[in-house]
Simulated scan of single mutants.
Amino acid sequence: MGFRVIKGGLLTTVQDLGRSGYQSQGFNVGGVMDRRSFRIANLLLDNPENEAVLECTLIGPTLEFTSSQIIAITGGDFRPELNDDPVPMYTAIYVNKGDVLKVGSARTGRTCYIAFSNYLQIPVVMGSRSTNLKCGIGGFKGRKLNDGDYISTRIKRRKYLPFFLSRSLPLHEFDSSTETIRVIMGPQDDMFSSKGIETFLNSEFTISSNFDRMGVRMDGPFVESKMGSDIISDGIALGAIQVPAHGKPIILLADHQTAGGYAKIGTVASVDLPKVVQRRIDDKIRFKSITVEEAQHLIKVEEHEYQEFRNRIHKPCKEVLEVRLTAQRLEKLFV
Results as ranks from 00 to 15, higher is better:
Tyr119Asp: 07
Leu333His: 07
Lys275Leu: 14
Leu253Asn: 04
Met218Phe: 15
Gly228Asn: 13
Cys317Phe: 12
Asp149Leu: 09
Ser289Asp: 08
Leu63Glu: 04
Val32Glu: 01
Gln23Arg: 14
Lys288Asn: 10
Asn96Lys: 15
Glu294Ala: 13
Gly266Thr: 06
Asn210Phe: 10
Ile207Asn: 02
Gly220Met: 07
Gly247Asn: 04
Gln15Thr: 05
Leu82Thr: 07
Cys135Phe: 13
Val320Phe: 10
Arg182Gln: 11
Val292Gln: 12
Ile114Met: 12
Lys275Gln: 10
Leu238His: 13
Leu201His: 03
Ala106Cys: 11
Gly215Met: 05
Ser67Thr: 15
Leu273Tyr: 02
Glu305Ser: 09
Arg213Asn: 06
Glu224Tyr: 12
Lys156Glu: 13
Thr291Glu: 08
Lys159Glu: 13
Leu58His: 06
Met126Asn: 14
Thr13Val: 13
Val100Cys: 12
Asn28Thr: 14
Glu294Trp: 04
Glu322Val: 11
Val276Ser: 00
Ser270Gln: 12
Leu10Met: 14
Arg329Ile: 09
Gly139Phe: 04
Ile40Ser: 02
Ile232Ala: 14
Lys156Thr: 14
Leu120Val: 05
Ser117Leu: 09
Asn118Tyr: 00
Lys226Met: 11
Leu120Tyr: 09
Phe78Pro: 10
Asp34Pro: 02
Asn202Met: 00
Lys284Arg: 11
Tyr306Met: 12
Lys195His: 09
Gly8Ile: 05
Val276Gln: 03
Gly104Thr: 08
Ser229Tyr: 07
Gly60Ala: 08
Ile265Ala: 00
Val223Lys: 04
Ala92Asn: 07
Ala106Tyr: 02
Gly127Lys: 06
Val277Tyr: 02
Met89Arg: 08
Arg312Cys: 08
Arg279Ile: 01
Lys159Asn: 15
Met191Cys: 07
Ile250Tyr: 09
Gly261Ile: 01
Ser229Gln: 06
Ile281Gly: 01
Gly138Phe: 05
Ser67Ile: 04
Gly75Tyr: 02
Ile137Lys: 11
Ile122His: 09
Val124Gln: 06
Phe78Leu: 08
Arg280Cys: 05
His256Asp: 00
Gly239Phe: 05
Ser152Lys: 15
Leu58Ala: 14
Ala115His: 07
Ala106Leu: 06
Gln121Cys: 05
Met227Glu: 15
Lys300Cys: 08
Ser67Met: 14
Ile40Tyr: 02
His297Thr: 14
Thr131Val: 10
Arg312Leu: 15
Lys226Tyr: 06
